[in-house]
Structures are given as C-alpha cells and as structure tokens.
Design a protein around this nucleic acid. Sequence first.
DNA 1: GCGTCTTGATCACAGGATGTTTACACGCAA
DNA 2: TTGCGTGTAAACATCCTGTGATCAAGACGC
Lengths: 292, 292
Amino acid sequence: MIKTPSDGLSASKLITVSAMSPERTESQPGNQPVGQRGQARLRVAVIDRDPGFMQVLSNRLGTLGCEHRALSSPVNVETLVAMRLNALVLDLAVIGPEGWEYLERVCGRLPGLAVIVCTGPSSVAQRVRGLRLGADAWMTKPCHPEELICVIEAAVRRHRRQELPQIDMAASIGEITIRPDLYQAYVGEQSLELTAREFEILQLLSQSDRVLRREEIYERVWGYAMAHGDRSVDVFVRKLRQKLRASSPSWSYIHTHFGVGYRFAPEPELSEAEQIGSDPQSAPELPAALTR
Amino acid sequence: MIKTPSDGLSASKLITVSAMSPERTESQPGNQPVGQRGQARLRVAVIDRDPGFMQVLSNRLGTLGCEHRALSSPVNVETLVAMRLNALVLDLAVIGPEGWEYLERVCGRLPGLAVIVCTGPSSVAQRVRGLRLGADAWMTKPCHPEELICVIEAAVRRHRRQELPQIDMAASIGEITIRPDLYQAYVGEQSLELTAREFEILQLLSQSDRVLRREEIYERVWGYAMAHGDRSVDVFVRKLRQKLRASSPSWSYIHTHFGVGYRFAPEPELSEAEQIGSDPQSAPELPAALTR
DNA sequence: GCGTCTTGATCACAGGATGTTTACACGCAA
DNA sequence: TTGCGTGTAAACATCCTGTGATCAAGACGC
C-alpha cells in the first residue's frame, strides 16, 4: 500500500524493538493504566535512535499496557496513518533536514494524533516553530522517561476527550433504533442493513445535536484529515438517506446545511396529503423550524 | 546520544520569534478568521506574581486577540468556572503548600480547561505529579513568553473541539438569538434563513462592541485581505438588514458609520407614530447618538 | 486458485444555491 | 453644490450538493 519508494521509508525498515505487550496492568497501584476508560489500549510509536532511552521507554510503556513501536527512522506519513496511533514521540534529529516539514505533514494529516517532540538541546525559536507546526509538547533530552510518559499521557488525555464516549446503549431516535452493540440500526425489527462505515457516520451524526462540518465527520470516522475536495462524506450521506427513506419514509433525518455540513434531527416529513389535513401550526415545533 | 540536532534545525531555517510576532496580527495563516468555524476568542487567565513577566505576557496575549486576566492570588474554583476560560496559566509557588490540591480541584472541575503550570525550578517528581493531577503542560521559569504562548495554544488547540458547547453558547441580542451550533440566527423560533457567510458576518458583528471597518470584517470572515473597492461587505450587510427587518421589524441592528464601517447594536426602532407621540427628546437613546 | 459479491473510493454531470460584480440612485460631508 | 461613500437591485459567475455510475480492493464461498 501507499508507500512511496522515493522516501526510502518503507515499512520494511521498521524495527520493532520490543513487543512486550501482553503483560500489562494490575502490577503496582502507582501504575495508572493509561489506556483506561474502557478505551482500546494506547498505541504509541517512538521515532528515535538512542538505544538506551528506547529500552527504558519501552519497558515503561509495556508496563503501562501500551502497544508501542520503536522506529529508528522516519516512516511514510501514510504508514503512520495505517498504524492507527494515539501518540507519536519524535526526535527531530533522527529525521534530519526535513524534520520540520515532516512534522507539519504528520500533524496536518493526523490532527487527532498526539505528537511529542523529544529531542536534544534546542532554541526557543525552534521549540516555538515545532509547537506552531502542530506538536503537542516539546521535551528536551535528556529527560526522565517517567516525565516523558506523563507528557504523553497528558497529550493523549486531551485528544481523547474529543472522541466519542463509547456508548453501548441502544438509542431510539425518531423511528429508528441504533444498536452500537450490533453495529446496526433498525426500524422496528427491520435492519437498515448499513455497512460499517455507514453505521459509524450515522452514529456520529445521531450523537451530535449540532451541524457537523464534512471535515469533522471525516476526521472522526476515518481517523485522519479529509483531503480537499473529497466527496466521500456526501456519498455516504446519500446512501444513508436512501436506506433511511426506504425503511422510514415518513421521516427525514439528515439535514443539509448549505456551505456548512450536515445535521441529524429526526423530523416527521410532511407529505402533501398530511400538509392539507394537518393542523395549521405551520411554523411547527422548534427543531423543525431550525432546519435552516 | 543527544546528538546536536542536525541541519534540520539549522538556524537559517528558523523563524525568529521576534520576526514572527508582527505578522501574526496582520494576516496570514496564523490568523484564525474569527467568524469562521465558530471559533471565539481565547479566554486566558494567569495566576502569577512576577510583574515583568505578566506585563510581557499581557502584551502578547492582547496582540493575539486573547481576552486575558491577570490574577495575583488563587481564586475560588467556582470563580474560575464562571470565567469560562479556555486556558489557565498557573505558578504553583503563588498558591503555596496547597498548590497540588488546588491544581487537582481545578483540573477535576474543569476537564476542558487547558492548564499550564509555569513555575520555578522543580524536580522530575514534582512535574510528574503536576501532570498526573491533570495539568496539560509544565513550563519551567524563567521561560520565553513566546514559548509559553505556543504551549497555551497547543493545549487549547485540542481541548477546544469538544469544549464547543461552552464557547459556542447561544446568545440573545435584541430580539434575535444566535446559534453557532446550528450556524443560524432566530427570532423566537423562526429562522432568519441566513446563508453561511451571512451568519458568519452577523456573528462577527454581534461579538464586537465597536465599529468594524469593512476591511476588518472582510479579512476576518473571508480569511484574506479585501481588494480595494470590493463591495461584498456592503452587499452582505444589506442582505442581513433585509432579513433582520423582515423578522424583527421594530429593531435596528446594524448601524452605518459613514466613512468608517459598521457597528452592531440592537436598538428599538422608533416608528413614526411613536415619534409623534413621544416626548420631544427626539435624540433619545445614547447609542444612536454615537452613530458618528 | 478462482470467480462472485460486498464495500468503499472516485468521477462526471446537472441543477440549484450562493457569492461577486456591476450599475445606478441616494445621502452625507466639505 | 460637488464629490465621495453608501444603499439597492439585478445580472452574472462560481461554488456546492445530489445523484448515478464506474472502478479497485477485499471478503467469501467454491
């Protein structure tokens, strides 16, 4: 996939220093399980070349129950995307002259990734630059591994807040019922037959009572930044509407806000017949009036 | 180890801090168009006692368009809540022995608040403790103000998204209600049916208590400088007035300042009948008198 | 291994909504 | 009064979205 030969940064160069994952948790009380909150375990990658440092760090990360990966050279950004990381620790010195550009690309492509630059002595201007490019924190080596871990945790803590609180409870909205446990939505007993991605988008929309911009939807569902001009979200919204209409014809759920994005709100659809017969409360209940 | 950062970090590539500053306020990528994306101005509080430091920091924050507040002693946590802050910079030394407890209370009560501890020399254990208690970053004084600013920005950058409800609060002004979450304004429950751009302009105007020059409006909404002679702002103001008048006829909201720009201020409109019947104090409301 | 089916990504097109530009009328200040 | 800045309206250009179709990649059963 995706690897650009020109980079010379193929995945085959990845070196897994330690894969001591399964141990994890429940050792000492002082050990705060990082990947708690029922979330999946933290996935951390470290790009560095200092063997001693890596060793210590790996041990600590392993103890904390993080899945971690040590890389001795920068990897293709798309490879990073595929790794589905939560955090990245980066020594700019390893990357060389393109370090800044690399940092910018990574942060731009993965806005949800916690990026910690951990590098040797630097100037204020350098640190400022790194942070402006999107890094979440800057640690100066040599540093205590424990402190670095805490910085990682703090950065991830921030990022995680914006993730959806994983609610496994079924929710009924309008005529449909969303079943996160089954990754499916229903109207009564009838399944909407949503694909995985369709369901994720529906779930995201249904949990937000505001307009979501396409970029926001894309980023939260796909996990990385939306390319300019990408129409995927539109296409999925169309499919969703199609299936929703098929199963629940008298309701409309996903509303377009021109120039902004989409908003989820179940509203009874007024067919012509109903309109004629219905009460004259034609400036209806709040949510409907908010459609625009 | 700790190898000197290679060429990637060479001084030639660095943007000097001082050179950065002026650009930031003028235009260019660093400048977030305020009206767009529902971003409101940053609200920052600083608890510290170093007058010089505070002075410099205040200047920078002001230049960046942050609302900021300097506090020389710790304030009640609930007071902090009421301040609706985005970020808090804290010198633990100011608080004294119960600094840790204070930090914990603040972070616990305001998980969406970016907390930066900026204090004198400390041990690893102290920094670890601070970060574990919920701080987002730890800066050691003395530090460069610009770096601190960047750290604040980095911390807020992430927190911000989910904290939208606080920042994007609906606001009622005159008869209209502005709903950033829906990208729309209402009179009662009736939508004004603003387009995205119209809404952004209205929002920008409504957030400013002063006269805004056309160039200013254009730059903050469109995100780049206005071409000489461009009438777009005028046209949009007209459309806004039209829609405002249609939904809220007895108020006037957007006032022209000849030769300057526009100012937003809801004022009850005097119909002819009222004018005739009213007392001759016909240059009544102060704000109207300020029109020029 | 092979073909088939499902899923998701991408494209092109059309229609409509929106934003920009232009022209002219009006009003304010010198 | 003149000159310039502003209000108004409409024509025009552009962008945005809905839609259907196509294509590539993987899953699955044989």
